[in-house]
Structure formats: structure tokens, C-alpha cells
């Protein structure tokens, strides 16, 4: 049983720990050798951190690509080197008087596809080296702009100089950068003082378990969610034993008359499930020919 754990534990990350540290701690608790996360959170941030255990780590790429939702509070008028409350003070500027209408207009202009230059203090690699390791040594990593999508940018409150927002965005969006860019447009700069991820894909923070609860629990595995559920945003298709064998050998399978069940377009992939609902493989569908092509195969019961 030990070592054969696979699935996801949705953790409500505590403040002050790095994402990697959380992964190690959870991995240690459930005694699984392989553990990872699907998209890191800054050490100061709290909220949804998906901890992948065992074979589930192979699903990271699919889970990472999902939409995220954050609650963020930024302090206007103060810039720091890390763009969060932990960094060294860079600059202090006067905060202009801002009307609600003005703010709403500004926020609106950030919705949609935007370009971001990732923060110097980020794990983004520059020529194979994490940017933060360059920044920490006093260097200036040259980061290429990335394209991200902001689906929603809602004003929750503004009490000078604290601006609270709800952000719904594509994966890879740097909220610190978003706040800095907002600050620049206001002419006063800004940094993040509080950041909470409230949703990753379909998983909300209310469904997450705190480190404390996890430790306390005698059976932390009760919080483990199965592989198939993790990618339930993908449509599913049921396959028979013969087809399972084929998929496991990397062979293609015809969809025939079967239709895809569940939600999603299938653009991200399709779940091939056995008759008990266990995940057999993540497949690509070739629409024209109706062929299921295995992309990632899971062999259970080993």
C-alpha cells in the first residue's frame, strides 16, 4: 500500500512556506516518494496548492494549464524589489486621488490578452537559470515577455493606499507583476501585501485542507482525490478491456459511435476510463478520423 499512493491532495497553503516545502511536508506525512505540485504559489501567498502524489505527478501539466482565481491586496505608492511585502523598499511615491470610475476603467483595460514581463524574483528560467537566483546575487535577469489572459479583474475595495481585487486569469499569470503594472499605470507603483489563490481549475479553497488538519488527521489519505477526478474537466470516454490493453501499448483506439461524456471541448485531452471509472489514459482525439491517441497512460494495480 505504501509507495503506491496516487492522487491529489488540495492543500490550503499556509503563509511563509515555499510551495516545495509544503510538497515535502505532505509527501512526508503520507510517506510517498514522489510528490510535486501543479503550479507554485509565492511563499507569502496562501490558498489552493495542488499536491500531486505518486503517479499523479504525471498529470501536473494538465492541471497547471487550468484557470486560476486570486484575491489580492496591493499597496499603492510603494515599490519593493520582490514586488511583495517581503522585499526591500525601492521607492515611495505619492498616491493620486483615484475615483471609482477611474479605477474601474483602468482595470477594464487589463482584461483580455496582455503581455507581462515576469518578476525578477520568480522561478522563470533565463538561459536555464532561475531568475531569482540571478536577482538574489544582485543581477538583473532579462526576462522575455509572456502572453497571459485576464478573464476577470474585479474591484473589491479601495481604501487608499490598499487596493483589493479578484483576479481570474490564465495559468502562468504573475499577480505581482499585474499589481506592479497597475501601479505603474497609476504613476505611483505598487506591491502585493496579501495574496490568496481561491481556485485552481474546479478546485476552490473551501475544499482544501490545511496543513494543520492534515497533520492532525490519523489518515491523511482520506483527503486524497483520485486521478480521474483531478482531470474531470476533460470529457471522458469508456473503453473496454481490449482497448485498455491497446492503449497501454500505445496503440490508437477508434471512438466509433461513442460520444464524449462530461464537460469540456476535449482540446486539452480526453480521459479514457475503464468500466469502474478509473483513469486508463489521457488521450488526444483526432476529430476528423475519430481516433483516440494515448498521450499519457496510467497502469494501475502494480
Amino acid at each position: 500500500m505504501l509507495g503506491n499512493v496516487q492522487g491529489l491532495i488540495p492543500l490550503d497553503k499556509p503563509k511563509g512556506l515555499t510551495s516545495r516545502r509544503c510538497v515535502d511536508l505532505v509527501g512526508q506525512m503520507v510517506r510517498v516518494r514522489k510528490a510535486g505540485h501543479a503550479g507554485s504559489l509565492d511563499p507569502l501567498a496562501t490558498g489552493v496548492l495542488l499536491i500531486l502524489l505518486g503517479k499523479a505527478t504525471r498529470l501536473a501539466e494538465y492541471l497547471m494549464r487550468t484557470e486560476k482565481e486570486y484575491l489580492v491586496t496591493a499597496q499603492l505608492g510603494v515599490k519593493t524589489d520582490t514586488a511583495d511585502a517581503e522585499g526591500a523598499l525601492l521607492e515611495k511615491r505619492e498616491v493620486p486621488t483615484l475615483s471609482r470610475e477611474f479605477l474601474l476603467d483602468l482595470l477594464k483595460s487589463f482584461v483580455g490578452e496582455i503581455q507581462q514581463i515576469p518578476p525578477a524574483y520568480s522561478a522563470k528560467k533565463v538561459a536555464g537559470i532561475p531568475a531569482y537566483s540571478i536577482a538574489r546575487r544582485g543581477g538583473q535577469p532579462r526576462l522575455a515577455p509572456i502572453t497571459v489572459t485576464i478573464f476577470e479583474l474585479a474591484l473589491l475595495s479601495y481604501q487608499e493606499p490598499l487596493l483589493s481585487l479578484r483576479v481570474r486569469c490564465s495559468h502562468g499569470t504573475y499577480i505581482r507583476t499585474l499589481c506592479e503594472d497597475l501601479g505603474e499605470r497609476l504613476g505611483c507603483g505598487a506591491h502585493v501585501t496579501d495574496l490568496r489563490r481561491t481556485r485552481v481549475g474546479f478546485l476552490r479553497d473551501q475544499e482544501c485542507v490545511s496543513l494543520e488538519t492534515l497533520v492532525e488527521s490519523v489518515t491523511p489519505l482520506q483527503f486524497l482525490r483520485p486521478l480521474s477526478e483531478m482531470v474531470s474537466f476533460m470529457p471522458g470516454v469508456c473503453v473496454n478491456d481490449e482497448e485498455i490493453l491497446a492503449l497501454r501499448q500505445g496503440k490508437m483506439v477508434f471512438l466509433k459511435e461513442r460520444t464524449l461524456s462530461g464537460t469540456g471541448t476535449g482540446a486539452e485531452g480526453v480521459r479514457a476510463l475503464d468500466d469502474e471509472g478509473n483513469l486508463v489514459a489521457i488521450c488526444r482525439v483526432q476529430e476528423d478520423s475519430g481516433i483516440l491517441k494515448p498521450e499519457k497512460v496510467f497502469v494501475s494495480g502494480e
Partner: peptide, 10 residues
């Protein structure tokens, strides 16, 4: 206002 986890860890 420091979270206990943060105090312990950091």
C-alpha cells in the same frame, strides 16, 4: 499578525 506556520518556518 505573523502566521504561526511562518514564524515556525522562517
Amino acid at each position: 499578525e505573523t502566521d504561526p506556520e511562518m514564524f515556525l518556518e522562517r
